[in-house]
Structure formats: C-alpha cells, structure tokens
Simulated assay, not measured.
Amino acid sequence: MSRKQFRVTGMSCEHCAASITEEVSQVPGVSQVDVDVKAGSVSVGGTDLDDALLRAAIVEAGYEVTESVAA
C-alpha cells in the first residue's frame, strides 16, 4: 500500500473531516483516509493513488490543498 499526504486549509471541525473522508474515499484505489483537522493534513492510503484525483476530491469537498507532503 502506498501513502500520500496533503496539507489542507479551511478545515475547522469533525464535519470538515467527514466531508473530506467521504469525497476522497470515492477515488479509485483509496482504502484509508486519515484527516487531522488540528494539523491541517490529510493522509491517504491505497494502491495506484492518483495525486490529481485526490487533490480534486479534496477541492470538491470545499477545501484547498496547499502542498503535497512526502508520506
């Protein structure tokens, strides 16, 4: 399983985490999503993860990806 991590702005509560988890979970290959609201990070685990699709899912949930971080 590979992992990707993103810095995300605009998250402030568990509802934010749930929205991101719901959107990102629909991306092909995703098997795990961990959102840390306090740290402003989203960590995604799975196989054949597509960085652009993951970013698009986070944006679709209403948040901004500021950078990808080596996971």
Rank of each mutant, 00 (worst) to 15 (best):
V33N: 01
S25R: 15
A17E: 04
A52W: 07
T9V: 12
L49M: 01
S25K: 15
V44L: 08
H15F: 04
S31V: 09
K4D: 08
I20N: 01
G40S: 08
I20R: 00
H15R: 10
C13T: 07
A18D: 11
S31L: 10
S12R: 06
Q32T: 11
C16M: 09
D34L: 06
A61F: 10
A61R: 05
S25D: 03
Y63S: 09
V8R: 02
S68M: 09
V42I: 12
G62E: 08
S31A: 07
V35Y: 04
V33I: 04
S25C: 13
K38T: 04
S2A: 13
G29L: 15
V59G: 01
S19I: 06
V42C: 06
V65L: 14
Q32W: 12
A17G: 04
V44K: 00
V44R: 00
D34H: 14
V30R: 14
D51S: 02
K4M: 07
K38R: 12
D34P: 04
G45E: 00
E64K: 14
S12A: 10
E60N: 11
R55P: 01
S31H: 14
A18Y: 08
V30G: 12
K4T: 06
C13W: 09
T9L: 13
A39M: 02
S19E: 06
R7K: 08
F6E: 03
D51V: 08
D50V: 14
H15P: 02
C13Q: 12
M1H: 14
Q5I: 11
L54Y: 01
M11Q: 08
E14K: 14
A17M: 07
S12E: 07
D36Y: 01
E23A: 09
V8A: 10
V69Y: 05
V65I: 06
D50T: 13
G29E: 14
L54V: 15
D51N: 01
D50E: 15
Y63L: 03
M11I: 08
E23P: 01
C13I: 05
G62I: 05
E60W: 05
V27D: 05
D51C: 00
E22F: 10
R7N: 08
V44W: 01
H15G: 11
H15A: 13
G40A: 15
V35N: 01
G40C: 15
P28Q: 15
C16N: 09
I58V: 15
G40L: 07
A39P: 02
G40Q: 11
S12C: 09
A39R: 00
V27P: 00
K4Q: 12
V37A: 12
T21Q: 13
T21C: 02
E60T: 12
D48L: 09
E67P: 05
S19A: 13
S68K: 11
Q5E: 14
L49G: 00
C16E: 06
A70F: 13
D50S: 09
